[in-house]
């Protein structure tokens, strides 16, 4: 396997080809915060919390580090002002959905007490649609007992109608949920 050297926050990092920027950073002990990333699962690229700034040649770009492949000579900055702004905005947008729990805690750490966005008539499901429950069921267990339904702003997590036949009661969907709210969701949406 070929090795690749890139620069993350000023440190030279050498990793195997095929690793993502997020994995490379992790190997170098540089923490990039994530919401939808899980080691056992394929990167999902949905929360955009792991965005970093990369420079390739003269071109600067913001990319999701969980899916962007490590490249030779790439310069990565994980904590620029714009990156911080983006993370704050993600949390601010998620707060109406998750007014308590881990998102709230994280928001506090980013100096965010209150969201400027409307909270009324938004159901605090605590679900950020990170998809860990869905993906674990699909990718690891190879069942599709939990799935996404709907599209756009109506997208939600649901137990599929055939879940009773598909589910092997591994309960991982309960424990993998960072908000710890999966049982509530399951009750609410089960058909």
């Amino acid at each position: 396997m070929q090795e690749i050297t890139l620069e993350i926050d000023g440190f030279k990092v050498t990793v195997e080809e095929g690793k993502t920027v997020l994995e490379a950073a992790k190997e170098a002990g540089i923490a990039i915060p994530t919401l939808c990333y899980h080691e056992e699962l394929e990167p999902f690229g949905a929360c955009r919390f792991c965005m970093v700034e990369i420079t390739k040649g003269n071109r600067k770009r913001l990319v999701a580090s969980c899916v962007y492949p490590a490249e030779e000579g790439l310069v990565v900055k994980t904590n620029t002002d714009r990156v911080k702004e983006i993370r704050r905005m993600i949390l601010e947008l998620l707060l109406p959905l998750a007014p308590a729990g881990p998102i709230r805690e994280l928001a506090r750490r980013y100096g965010l007490e209150k969201s400027r966005f409307k909270t009324e008539d938004i159901k605090p499901t605590h679900c950020t649609l990170c998809g860990m429950c869905v993906r674990y069921c699909n990718e690891v267990m190879k069942y599709d007992a939990v799935s996404f339904v709907g599209r756009g702003v109506s997208k939600a997590v649901a137990l599929t109608p055939e879940a009773r036949d598909l589910c092997v009661f591994c309960r991982k969907c309960y424990t993998i949920c960072e908000a710890g709210r999966f049982p509530m969701l399951a009750e609410e949406y089960s058909v």
């Binding site: 955009r48 905005m89 998620l94 709907g150 702003v153």
Partner: peptide, 13 residues
Amino acid sequence: SDESCGKCVPCRE
């Protein structure tokens, strides 16, 4: 907002 796939936070929220 109806036609977005709803996957990523910036677009959906």
